[in-house]
Computed example of a mutant assay.
Amino acid sequence: MPTALITGASAGIGEAFVRLLTEQKFHLVLVARREDRLQQIASEITNQGGSAEILVADLATTEGLTRVEDYIKAHPLDLLINNAGFGIYGATVDTDPEKEAEMIRLNILALTTLTRAALPEMLKRKAGRILQVGSVLSFFPTPYMTGYGATKAFVLHYSEALHRELKGSGVTVTALCPGSTESEFAAVSGLEQNRQMTATEVARQGLLASEQGKSFILPGTSNKLLPFLNRLLPRNWFTGIVARSLRS
């Protein structure tokens, strides 16, 4: 039975990954901070004949990140999904610098640490997949979500570069870059979202892209237009459009 570890597995896109991979007969390792929620999801999976275990950890802390890193090094994975992350909305000068530092640790440091933990064994077996959850905001500057957009740009560039490095190795890295999605993201970030895709559809497209060995996937037709416009328009113009959109 193949094994998949999913971070941020207690809600939203992370939980959608869990449900879809249960159908694919994966043994699942569910990682998140909320033990009660993880227990509930794991119980539902096992009651349906699936296989799941939980790993309670706050990946924004050294202790939590080390716990998951050590688990990955001791338990070979077939699929790693780095989904955990959050955003902060507002003018940079008005946002909490400690919260921003926590966001950077989770969105960047945790993702790279767990990726590096999984890679050696995958490369030894010449098989494995890593799916990184970025954002449509990975493709351009994001005034009023300055730090968040920058962390997701890192996710995209890191994943694309690593995908190329690993070409021919049997191991693939894919960046999933969704736009507005039904999840807890808006409540955490303080950003109101419209025209949302379902978390299940986003997760489904991400898993398919990973199976196909793609370097990245932008789910949703309208989301695909934004990076195109960013290339078409002068960069400062497009950044101004994004600023007006997010400010409002």
Rank of each mutant, 00 (worst) to 15 (best):
1 M>N: 12
7 T>N: 03
8 G>W: 11
8 G>Y: 00
8 G>M: 11
12 G>A: 05
13 I>E: 09
18 V>I: 02
25 K>C: 10
28 L>P: 05
28 L>Q: 06
30 L>I: 10
31 V>W: 11
31 V>S: 06
32 A>N: 13
33 R>T: 08
34 R>C: 08
37 R>M: 06
43 S>C: 04
44 E>M: 11
48 Q>A: 15
51 S>Y: 13
53 E>L: 14
60 A>R: 02
62 T>Y: 05
64 G>P: 02
66 T>N: 13
66 T>Q: 11
68 V>T: 15
70 D>S: 15
75 H>E: 12
76 P>C: 08
79 L>C: 08
84 A>R: 01
88 I>A: 15
92 T>M: 03
93 V>A: 14
94 D>M: 04
95 T>F: 09
101 A>D: 14
103 M>G: 14
108 I>W: 02
111 L>G: 00
118 A>D: 03
118 A>R: 09
120 P>A: 07
121 E>C: 03
129 R>E: 09
130 I>D: 04
134 G>F: 07
134 G>S: 15
140 F>R: 12
141 P>F: 10
145 M>W: 01
148 Y>D: 05
153 A>M: 09
156 L>Q: 07
157 H>A: 08
158 Y>K: 09
160 E>Q: 15
160 E>D: 11
161 A>H: 06
161 A>V: 03
162 L>G: 05
163 H>S: 12
168 G>Q: 11
168 G>W: 03
170 G>F: 07
170 G>Y: 04
182 E>W: 05
186 A>V: 06
196 Q>M: 03
197 M>F: 08
198 T>N: 03
201 E>K: 02
202 V>H: 10
204 R>V: 03
208 L>V: 14
209 A>S: 11
210 S>E: 02
212 Q>N: 10
214 K>C: 05
220 G>A: 00
221 T>W: 12
222 S>G: 08
222 S>D: 07
228 F>K: 12
233 L>D: 12
234 P>G: 00
234 P>Q: 10
236 N>G: 02
240 G>W: 02
242 V>D: 03
244 R>A: 15
245 S>A: 13
246 L>Y: 11
247 R>N: 13
